[in-house]
Amino acid sequence: MAKRTLFSSRTPPRADAAGPATAPGVIETVTEQTKTDLAPPWHVIVRNDPINLMSYVTMVFQKVFGYPRQKAKAHMMEVHTRGQSIVWTGGREPAEHYVHVLQQYHLMAIMEKAQP
């Protein structure tokens, strides 16, 4: 039976709430270094839907990842204009946690193994 790692009680580290400022129009994707460096990282991806408000999606990215407003808004705009955005990249367990939390907020969140 496959190991169940879904949604452990461990709280994943928040993505760079106090990270460097991002230039306008540039979206930085945070990649976490963890002890599972040899395992391929996972992307957390949010897909567009026509109903969720832009202000709501921005607020959720700020709450869930601790992103500064400008960065949260840039990801929201990427979702809106390109159909999806990679909002976080890192280990599998925190990726599962983030997908769980984003879905609690009704966002279309999925996880995908990053291509090497």
Partner: peptide
């Protein structure tokens, strides 16, 4: 729409249905 499959990997989706969906609905 409310409960999209979180992955293209069926083992993740199966665990998610079993372990996560009831909690989301309860919340």
């Amino acid at each position: 729409r409310l409960l999209p499959k979180p992955s293209s990997q069926e083992n993740i989706n199966r665990d998610w249905r079993e372990l996560v969906v009831p909690g989301l609905e309860a919340l």
